[in-house]
């Protein structure tokens, strides 16, 4: 199981109606590809985050399916269009069943 997984998100706190805002996310995770071997020659089992979803007020901004080719400490940047104040929710799904969550509020005027 991945230890010390820390999600981080950055989205603006304020925006005007209809503005397209940039959102960035970073999470500490080894993204073990399942193709490496340890010192004894045994395959280190795959252990990655396989999905990331960002929603705004419950509706999807982006839903990403992730494979072992995503680098350690996965990073994403994308844009959302905000029509009203609300909350971004961010969810990462680990192979081991763990779910990591974060959120960020934005005031739209």
């Amino acid at each position: 199981m991945a230890e010390n997984v820390t999600p981080r998100v950055r989205a603006p706190r304020e925006a005007s109606v209809g503005e397209v805002v940039s959102v960035r996310t970073l999470i500490s995770h080894p993204m073990e590809s399942g193709m490496r071997r340890d010192g004894d020659g045994n395959v280190i089992p795959r252990s990655i985050i396989n999905r990331f979803v960002c929603t705004f007020n419950g509706e999807v901004v982006v839903d990403v399916t992730m494979e072992p080719s995503i680098a350690t400490n996965p990073y994403f940047q994308f844009e959302a269009k905000v029509m009203e104040s609300g909350t971004f929710n961010f969810t990462w799904y680990d192979d081991d069943g763990s779910v990591y969550e974060d959120s960020s509020d934005i005031t739209v005027s």
Partner: peptide
């Protein structure tokens, strides 16, 4: 990357 109704562009950056 599947873009939902709240996406502001159909663009993304990753590593």
């Amino acid at each position: 990357f599947k873009f939902g109704p709240m996406s502001g562009s159909q663009a993304a950056t990753t590593r």
